[in-house]
C-alpha cells in the first residue's frame, strides 16, 4: 500500500505546506478581498437603489397630492365663477326685461293717445262731411243748393237723433 511507504511522507508534507501556504496567501490577500468587495459593492448598490426608489415613490405621492389639491381648488374656483356669472346674467336680464317692459308700456300709452286723437279728429270732421254729403245730395235731388243754415241744423238734428 503506497500510503504506508514512509519514505514518501517528508516530500509530501513539504509540498503540502508549500502549496497550501501559497494558496492561503493568494486567497487571503487577493481572492477573498476581491470577491468580498464585489459582494459588498453589489449589496450597497442594491440598498442605494432601494433607497432611491423609496425617495422617488414619496416624491410621486407628494406630486399626486399636490395635483389633487390643485384639481379640487380649480373645481371650487370654477364653481364660484359659474355661480357669479349666472347671478350677473340674471341681474342683467332682469334689468333689461323691466326696462323693455317700461318702454313698451310707454309706447302702448303713446299709441293709445294717438288713436284717441285720431278718433276725436274723425268724429269732429264727421259733421262737416255729413253736411257736405247732404248738400251734394240735395243739390242733385232738387237742383238747387240748400240753405247752409238749415242744412247745418238738420245734420246736427240727425246726429243727435243717431246718438240718442
Amino acid at each position: 500500500m503506497p500510503q504506508l511507504d514512509f519514505t514518501t511522507y517528508v516530500p509530501q508534507i513539504i509540498w503540502l505546506v508549500i502549496s497550501f501556504t501559497a494558496m492561503f496567501l493568494v486567497m487571503w490577500k487577493v481572492c477573498v478581498p476581491r470577491i468580498g468587495g464585489a459582494l459588498e459593492a453589489r449589496q450597497k448598490k442594491i440598498e442605494q437603489n432601494l433607497e432611491r426608489a423609496a425617495e422617488l415613490k414619496a416624491e410621486a405621492e407628494a406630486a399626486i397630492e399636490a395635483y389633487e389639491k390643485a384639481l379640487a381648488d380649480a373645481r371650487a374656483t370654477a364653481h364660484e365663477e359659474i355661480v357669479k356669472v349666472q347671478a350677473d346674467l340674471k341681474a342683467k336680464q332682469d334689468a333689461e326685461e323691466s326696462k323693455l317692459s317700461q318702454t313698451l308700456q310707454a309706447r302702448i300709452k303713446e299709441g293709445e293717445a294717438t288713436i284717441d286723437k285720431a278718433l276725436q279728429g274723425a268724429l269732429a270732421s264727421l259733421d262737416t262731411m255729413a253736411s257736405d254729403v247732404a248738400a251734394a245730395a240735395c243739390e242733385r235731388l232738387t237742383g238747387e243748393a240748400p240753405d247752409a243754415k238749415a242744412l247745418e241744423k238738420a245734420v246736427a238734428g240727425a246726429a243727435k237723433a243717431r246718438q240718442a
Binding site: 516530500p11 509530501q12 508549500i18 502549496s19 501559497a22 494558496m23 476581491r34 464585489a38
Partner: peptide, 30 residues
C-alpha cells in the same frame, strides 16, 4: 531532507493554480 517534486506535489501545485486562476479570472470583470 528529501523534498523531491512528486506526482503528488504536481497535483497540489495544479490545485493551487487552478483554484487561483478560477477565482481571479472569474472575478476579472468584477
Amino acid at each position: 531532507i528529501d523534498a523531491s517534486f512528486t506526482n503528488s506535489a504536481l497535483m497540489m501545485v495544479a490545485t493551487v493554480v487552478v483554484v487561483s486562476a478560477f477565482l481571479i479570472l472569474g472575478m476579472r470583470r468584477n
